[in-house]
């Protein structure tokens, strides 16, 4: 198993008038190679949680293990941890700073102390993986469009060859096509490299198509944890915490309630189509 979180709690602004509990007794295990979606609305603690995973934030109580090693152990190499657990923040503007895209992507691997040839090779490879070709290498990162900036930011992390890739709202502010492209590329990377991927989002639709497991957070706690099918079965509770399920779940449930013998487990559009066709076929036979 790659990441294990045990009873982690965290409060913002401890000892001030604005103290707020952001994480409340979180326990979670994420095996190597899993594609996990972390979902919750704004302020549910999902961003706080992921910043604990690479040691940027320190839990008020609880323990975190990476490959079985306690990351709060005295003398644990946090910088090595950060290169293995790559975290891409929501706003690419927060990390792009170099004169051109290529040197910006080189920043991460160079910090690992790699030789220059290796750094450049990794930058090329990473930019290729996110679909930014040669013509973009010498462009200023501030000239790029929103989607391209985000790709450049993701490449900046990929070039460090992380074992775990965490993406915080990678699709916020993107049009549907840009969103699908980025998520498709991430899904492909996850398959090719066997990388563990954590996708943080507030959109069920985004996540449902890609991930094999969904962790739903609300008010600093984990409310649901399981396969998309299992989690979406609780769509009424999900609505209560302001999330809801993908449209397909509602369509199928609605059909079932009206007495249409359809399998309501489907989550993606394709699965829903097949389920409806199957149900129609069955009816035709009757």
């Amino acid at each position: 198993m790659s990441i294990k979180i045990e009873h982690v709690s965290y409060s913002y602004g401890q000892g001030t008038a604005y103290e707020k509990k952001a994480l409340d007794d979180i326990s979670l295990e994420i095996p190597q190679g899993q594609f996990v979606g972390i979902i919750g609305h704004t302020g549910s603690g999902k961003s706080t949680l992921i910043q604990h995973l690479n040691g940027l934030m320190r839990a008020s109580s609880g323990k975190i293990y990476f490959h079985g090693e306690d990351i709060y152990r005295e003398g644990y190499d946090m910088r090595a941890l950060r290169s293995k657990v790559g975290l891409v923040f929501q706003y690419p503007e927060h990390q792009l700073f170099e004169v051109d895209v290529f040197s910006d992507v080189c920043f991460g691997p160079r910090n690992l102390g790699l030789p220059p040839e290796e750094v450049e090779a990794r930058a090329r490879e990473a930019l290729d993986q996110v679909g930014l070709g040669e013509p973009y290498y010498k462009k200023s990162p501030f000239e790029l469009s929103g989607g391209q900036k985000r790709r450049a930011a993701i490449a900046g992390i990929l070039a460090m060859h992380p074992e775990v890739l965490i993406l915080d709202e990678p699709t916020a502010g993107l049009d549907p096509r840009g969103r699908d492209e980025i998520l498709d590329q991430v899904a492909a990377l996850q398959k090719e490299r066997g990388m563990t991927v954590l996708l943080v989002s507030h959109s069920m639709e985004d996540v449902a198509r890609y991930v094999e497991r969904i962790v739903v957070m609300d008010d600093g706690r984990i409310r649901f944890d399981g396969t998309p099918k299992k989690v979406f079965a609780h769509y009424r509770e999900l609505e209560e915490i302001g999330l809801g399920a993908p449209q397909t779940v509602y369509v199928l449930r609605g059909l079932a309630e009206k007495g249409f013998p359809v399998n309501t487990e489907a989550t993606t559009v394709e699965e829903a189509r097949d389920a409806i066709l199957e149900a129609l076929g069955r009816r035709n036979v009757c």
Binding site: Q51, R82, G86, V88, Q95, G156, I157
Partner: peptide
């Protein structure tokens, strides 16, 4: 934090 995540 974003830069520390890149090893800064």
């Amino acid at each position: 934090k974003a830069q520390m995540a890149r090893g800064a």
